[in-house]
Protein backbone atom coordinates (compact mmCIF):
# COMPACT_ATOMS: atom_id res chain seq x y z
CA UNK A 1 0.00 0.00 0.00
CA UNK A 2 1.25 3.47 -0.83
CA UNK A 3 2.03 5.28 2.41
CA UNK A 4 1.90 8.91 3.53
CA UNK A 5 5.65 9.02 2.89
CA UNK A 6 4.98 8.21 -0.76
CA UNK A 7 2.47 11.05 -0.78
CA UNK A 8 5.13 13.41 0.60
CA UNK A 9 7.41 12.46 -2.26
CA UNK A 10 4.63 13.15 -4.75
CA UNK A 11 4.05 16.52 -3.10
CA UNK A 12 7.72 17.46 -3.24
CA UNK A 13 7.97 16.47 -6.88
CA UNK A 14 4.82 18.43 -7.71
CA UNK A 15 5.98 21.50 -5.77
CA UNK A 16 9.11 21.79 -7.85
CA UNK A 17 7.11 21.98 -11.06
CA UNK A 18 4.17 24.02 -9.84
CA UNK A 19 2.55 26.39 -12.25
CA UNK A 20 -0.44 27.66 -10.39
CA UNK A 21 -3.60 27.29 -12.38
CA UNK A 22 -6.53 29.52 -11.61
CA UNK A 23 -9.49 27.46 -10.69
CA UNK A 24 -11.99 28.35 -13.38
CA UNK A 25 -9.98 30.25 -15.93
CA UNK A 26 -10.23 27.78 -18.73
CA UNK A 27 -12.32 25.00 -20.01
CA UNK A 28 -14.74 23.38 -17.62
CA UNK A 29 -16.04 19.84 -17.89
CA UNK A 30 -19.27 19.22 -15.98
CA UNK A 31 -20.45 15.66 -15.43
CA UNK A 32 -24.04 15.03 -14.31
CA UNK A 33 -23.76 13.07 -11.08
CA UNK A 34 -27.33 12.72 -9.79
CA UNK A 35 -29.04 9.35 -9.34
CA UNK A 36 -29.98 9.09 -13.01
CA UNK A 37 -26.44 9.91 -14.12
CA UNK A 38 -24.77 7.52 -11.68
CA UNK A 39 -27.15 4.71 -12.69
CA UNK A 40 -26.32 5.30 -16.33
CA UNK A 41 -22.56 5.13 -15.76
CA UNK A 42 -21.42 8.66 -14.90
CA UNK A 43 -18.80 7.50 -12.37
CA UNK A 44 -16.43 5.75 -14.82
CA UNK A 45 -17.05 8.58 -17.30
CA UNK A 46 -16.02 11.26 -14.81
CA UNK A 47 -13.02 9.22 -13.73
CA UNK A 48 -11.94 8.85 -17.34
CA UNK A 49 -12.02 12.64 -17.83
CA UNK A 50 -10.15 13.25 -14.57
CA UNK A 51 -7.46 10.69 -15.26
CA UNK A 52 -6.93 11.46 -18.93
CA UNK A 53 -6.73 15.19 -18.31
CA UNK A 54 -4.32 14.74 -15.41
CA UNK A 55 -2.30 12.12 -17.25
CA UNK A 56 -1.82 14.41 -20.24
CA UNK A 57 -0.92 17.34 -18.01
CA UNK A 58 -3.61 19.46 -19.57
CA UNK A 59 -3.65 22.73 -17.69
CA UNK A 60 -6.54 25.00 -16.91
CA UNK A 61 -9.19 22.37 -17.44
CA UNK A 62 -11.32 21.40 -14.46
CA UNK A 63 -13.66 18.45 -14.19
CA UNK A 64 -16.54 18.85 -11.79
CA UNK A 65 -19.48 16.67 -10.77
CA UNK A 66 -22.80 18.51 -10.96
CA UNK A 67 -26.40 17.72 -10.06
CA UNK A 68 -29.20 16.70 -12.37
CA UNK A 69 -28.98 18.53 -15.69
CA UNK A 70 -32.57 17.51 -16.37
CA UNK A 71 -32.61 14.95 -19.14
CA UNK A 72 -32.46 11.68 -17.25
CA UNK A 73 -33.18 9.53 -20.31
CA UNK A 74 -30.02 10.57 -22.12
CA UNK A 75 -27.55 10.41 -19.22
CA UNK A 76 -24.63 10.33 -18.73
CA UNK A 77 -24.54 13.96 -19.77
CA UNK A 78 -21.31 15.93 -20.01
CA UNK A 79 -21.16 19.67 -20.61
CA UNK A 80 -18.05 21.48 -21.75
CA UNK A 81 -17.87 25.21 -21.12
CA UNK A 82 -15.35 27.47 -22.80
CA UNK A 83 -16.10 31.09 -22.13
CA UNK A 84 -19.69 31.39 -23.22
CA UNK A 85 -19.63 28.42 -25.57
CA UNK A 86 -21.43 25.40 -24.21
CA UNK A 87 -21.29 21.94 -25.76
CA UNK A 88 -23.57 19.27 -24.35
CA UNK A 89 -22.77 15.64 -24.87
CA UNK A 90 -25.21 12.88 -24.02
CA UNK A 91 -25.10 9.12 -23.52
CA UNK A 92 -21.40 9.42 -22.87
CA UNK A 93 -19.54 6.22 -22.05
CA UNK A 94 -15.86 5.65 -21.31
CA UNK A 95 -15.00 5.33 -24.98
CA UNK A 96 -16.83 8.57 -25.78
CA UNK A 97 -15.10 10.30 -22.88
CA UNK A 98 -11.71 9.27 -24.25
CA UNK A 99 -12.65 10.66 -27.67
CA UNK A 100 -13.92 13.92 -26.18
CA UNK A 101 -10.64 14.40 -24.30
CA UNK A 102 -8.57 13.68 -27.38
CA UNK A 103 -10.62 15.40 -30.07
CA UNK A 104 -12.39 18.24 -28.23
CA UNK A 105 -10.35 19.12 -25.15
CA UNK A 106 -6.94 18.54 -26.73
CA UNK A 107 -7.83 18.89 -30.42
CA UNK A 108 -10.40 21.67 -30.18
CA UNK A 109 -12.94 19.91 -32.36
CA UNK A 110 -16.43 19.06 -31.13
CA UNK A 111 -17.20 15.33 -31.29
CA UNK A 112 -20.43 15.51 -33.26
CA UNK A 113 -21.31 11.85 -32.71
CA UNK A 114 -22.24 12.57 -29.11
CA UNK A 115 -23.57 16.11 -29.28
CA UNK A 116 -27.09 16.47 -27.95
CA UNK A 117 -29.85 17.57 -30.30
CA UNK A 118 -28.14 17.81 -33.63
CA UNK A 119 -27.23 14.23 -34.16
CA UNK A 120 -28.50 12.33 -31.13
CA UNK A 121 -31.47 12.46 -28.87
Amino acid sequence: MKSLDDLKKIRDAAQSKVNMRGKNDGMRVLVGMATCGISAGARPVMNTFVEKIAENNIEKVTVTPVGCIGECAIEPIVEILEGDIRTTYCRVDVEAAERIVKEHIIGGKVVLDYVIGKYRL
Binding site: K8, I10, R11, E51
Partner: peptide, 14 residues
Protein backbone atom coordinates in the same frame (compact mmCIF):
# COMPACT_ATOMS: atom_id res chain seq x y z
CA UNK B 1 -2.05 18.52 5.46
CA UNK B 2 0.60 16.53 3.62
CA UNK B 3 -0.27 17.94 0.20
CA UNK B 4 0.31 21.49 1.39
CA UNK B 5 -1.51 23.16 -1.50
CA UNK B 6 -0.81 20.62 -4.23
CA UNK B 7 -4.23 19.98 -5.79
CA UNK B 8 -6.14 16.72 -5.70
CA UNK B 9 -6.21 16.90 -9.49
CA UNK B 10 -2.49 16.06 -9.75
CA UNK B 11 -2.21 12.74 -11.55
CA UNK B 12 0.10 11.14 -9.02
CA UNK B 13 -2.06 12.34 -6.15
CA UNK B 14 -5.16 10.79 -7.74
Amino acid sequence: KVLDGIPFTDYNVI
